[in-house]
Simulated assay, not measured.
Amino acid sequence: MCDCVEKIIELLQENCGDNEAKMNGVSFCIGNNNRIQTFMTGSYSFRKKTITGEFYKTKTSGNVVFAFCPFCGKKYNFTKDIKKE
């Protein structure tokens, strides 16, 4: 697993001069060997169309989990240790 997210956040904080600067779309999961892994997520929203072709006023939204790091292109490893008994 890459450490691009941590590097980008560190560079952001360094360039802004604010050690509390954060990046949106960063999530965490506990991976193999109880290590915390960071990965990028995204969100989307759109308006559905009515039968007449007009758009509804309300938006539908959802989230996306990227399979690859958007910075270096390495595949995220979301596998879990499964013990067979």
Rank of each mutant, 00 (worst) to 15 (best):
F66C: 05
M1S: 12
V65D: 07
I82F: 15
D18G: 03
G17L: 05
I8G: 08
T60W: 09
S27K: 11
F78I: 14
K48A: 12
F71G: 04
G73Y: 13
D18F: 08
K80R: 15
C29M: 12
K22A: 09
S45W: 01
E20W: 01
N15S: 10
V26D: 08
D3K: 12
Y76D: 09
G25T: 05
M40E: 02
S27Q: 10
T60Y: 10
G73M: 14
C2L: 09
I9W: 06
A67C: 12
K57T: 05
M40T: 02
M1Q: 13
K74P: 00
F55D: 13
I8N: 07
N32M: 10
K7N: 01
F46M: 07
L11Q: 05
T58Q: 10
T50G: 08
S27H: 05
K22E: 01
E14I: 09
S61P: 13
F39N: 07
F39E: 03
Y44D: 00
A21I: 10
N33G: 03
G62F: 13
Y76C: 09
L12N: 07
N19W: 02
F68G: 03
P70N: 14
G62Y: 09
E20T: 04
K22L: 09
V65R: 04
T50W: 06
E6W: 10
F46V: 01
T58P: 02
I30E: 04
S45P: 00
N33S: 10
E6T: 09
R35F: 05
S43P: 00
T52I: 11
T52C: 11
F68M: 13
V64W: 06
F78L: 15
I51T: 00
Q13D: 03
K84C: 14
T52V: 08
N32E: 11
N19P: 02
F78A: 14
I36C: 05
K48L: 01
T41H: 05
T79H: 13
N32C: 13
K57L: 12
K48G: 04
E6N: 07
T50E: 06
R47Q: 13
N63S: 14
D18Y: 09
C16W: 04
E14S: 08
I82P: 05
T50I: 03
D81C: 12
N24I: 00
K74R: 14
N63P: 00
K59L: 13
M23Y: 03
V65E: 03
I51W: 07
N63R: 11
K22G: 01
E20D: 12
Q37Y: 05
I82G: 13
S43H: 08
S27N: 12
S45M: 02
K48S: 02
V64M: 08
I82K: 15
G53W: 09
